[in-house]
Nucleic acid binder design. Structure first.
Lengths: 292, 292
DNA sequence: TCACTCCATCAGGATATCGGATCGTTTGAT
DNA sequence: ATCAAACGATCCGATATCCTGATGGAGTGA
């Protein structure tokens, strides 16, 4: 006794149920009438149930057949979903995801992992530079989805999180006490002008201890307690700590993490990636939910 | 190119994914190693995707394989659900459903129809007599589920609806104005003593115009406007109407529609039937929902 | 380096499935 | 009442599919 249903037979079954005639169903399926008839017979024998009422012209479902019909449709739908998911071109390709390097953690790795699980045939390239570079990438079509750190949320952007910019340094570091204050920033870091003008306004002398292109240099310098840096409160790496300066340093402005989506044929997958990002940041994503 | 997945192959696929080895999976499936190996090959060829990573000892899923694994489990689960639903003895048998004749409408036909759709292999016998007879049927195991009309809700019963007992008569009938008041009731009708004592208390003379075993006789007499009857407000048939007596007749007591479930091996299906009854009466059925 | 394990592949045979033809039944028109 | 058309079940021969058992090659640990 076969324990497994044959999807082909279920297709014939639903076709016959729809048409009410074996011959018509067979024509629609590009099969012979005899083939379809045999499939129905096998199905009935396997389940040991009469599925059709053959009295009279044509062929009508029995109560058992009605029950199976619902299940058969679900089965076929699932089969087809698997098929498109695994083979359809729509679900393969490449996506470029731009994220400022300082907010890659903690959420982005999780998002990438989940997305890869859902769309294994899509290769996601993570591009982590600075907000300004990312925005130009998006405009030129060199990125499909970007996150940014900005003071405002311009039109076309979607805010994921609003967080405070805070001073950070080495664990139990003392560098923040020295004057002139030693800073370490990448050249294009968007926080750099914010920090500099805040210090100028507060009348605190400062100097750029490291003025590099490389994130590594900055990290190393801060780790060695030779300079301090600033970071969004929600994304401080574990090997640094927020400086408890007790008012000795100026407060920094609030910063928003924004998201921008590119348009185009890849939009459905971009939306899906964006949804995962929203979930990671704990944003409801109301529209998407409402649509389902 | 096959558009339909083979459940057998999916079974092998999940077994291999679980075991991590083709040989072990084959043993579990009572198949040869080569058979399983070829099934995997066919799956990969059909989907045109590598599902396993064969480098090294054993065999591990690729990202595509992981995606398929989730789907495969759903597919197999659905297949097995269909199989048990269509062939398992658990879902065939007979059920006796006892309902007082005067509340068969409007809900019972709907319930029976839905239940038959869900369990075509279960034959439901509808037994409609009087509340007292139904309760004794249930106690003697001659009924699996009964509804009753009673003033109270005894322990072991569940109230479905509380409704007023009202006077009914023929459409635009005048019979309620005559004295002595002409009544038509079946001999065992549970409403009969209620009505009689209400009339006695109000000092209204009455006589039993029809005192029959047959519902038909009662209906015919009332339809002919020769007598009046009483009925639960929520279940007045369309060919009768509630008498607008303006206080000339006494108010009748409130009546509850209760439900009793028999215990035993058929309990799961009885529960399901009870759930449909609750839904029809608009009762939440909290416990059942909480359990899911 | 040498067994040992594990998987892919090949050849042969059993089984399943399909297409074409035939037969019996129902149905509606004459 | 009769008959032709429509329809589904079934039989037969051809083919395709799938399984078993055997063989070979690749990786692995002593």
């Amino acid at each position: 006794m076969p324990r497994n249903l044959d999807i082909t037979a279920l297709r014939s079954f639903t076709a016959v149920a729809d048409e009410g005639k074996v011959t018509a169903a067979a024509a629609r399926l590009n099969l012979t009438q005899s083939a379809v008839s045999m499939q129905l017979k096998r199905l009935e024998e396997a389940l040991n149930q009469p599925l059709f009422d053959r009295s009279g012209r044509g062929i009508a479902l029995t109560a058992e057949g009605e029950l199976l019909l619902g299940y058969a449709r679900r089965m076929i739908a699932l089969n087809d979903e698997i098929w498109t998911r695994m083979t359809d071109e729509q679900f393969e390709g490449e996506l470029t995801f731009g994220v400022p390097h300082d907010i890659v953690y903690p959420h982005v790795p999780v998002v990438l992992r989940r997305f890869a699980r859902e769309f294994p045939r899509v290769k996601v390239t993570l591009n982590s530079t600075f907000t300004t570079a990312l925005k130009s990438d998006l405009e030129r079509g060199r990125a499909d989805l970007i996150l940014t750190t900005e003071k405002e949320t311009p039109p076309g952007a979607e805010v994921l999180e609003q967080s405070q910019l805070v001073w950070i340094g080495a664990l139990q570091g003392e560098a923040w006490k020295s004057r002139p204050l030693k800073l370490a920033y990448e050249r294009a870091c968007i926080f750099r002008p914010i920090v500099q003008s805040a210090l100028d306004d507060a009348g605190i002398p400062w100097e750029m201890a490291v003025d590099s292109e490389m994130t590594r240099s900055v990290e190393a310098t801060v780790s060695a307690d030779l300079a301090i840096h600033s970071q969004i409160e929600a994304a401080v790496p574990p090997y640094f700590e927020v400086i408890d300066h007790g008012g000795a340093l100026p407060s920094l402005s609030a910063i928003r993490i924004n998201m921008y989506l590119a348009d185009g044929p890849k939009r459905p997958m971009i939306e899906r990636l964006a949804t995962l990002v929203r979930e990671a940041y704990g944003v409801s994503g109301g529209m998407k939910l409402a649509a389902e």
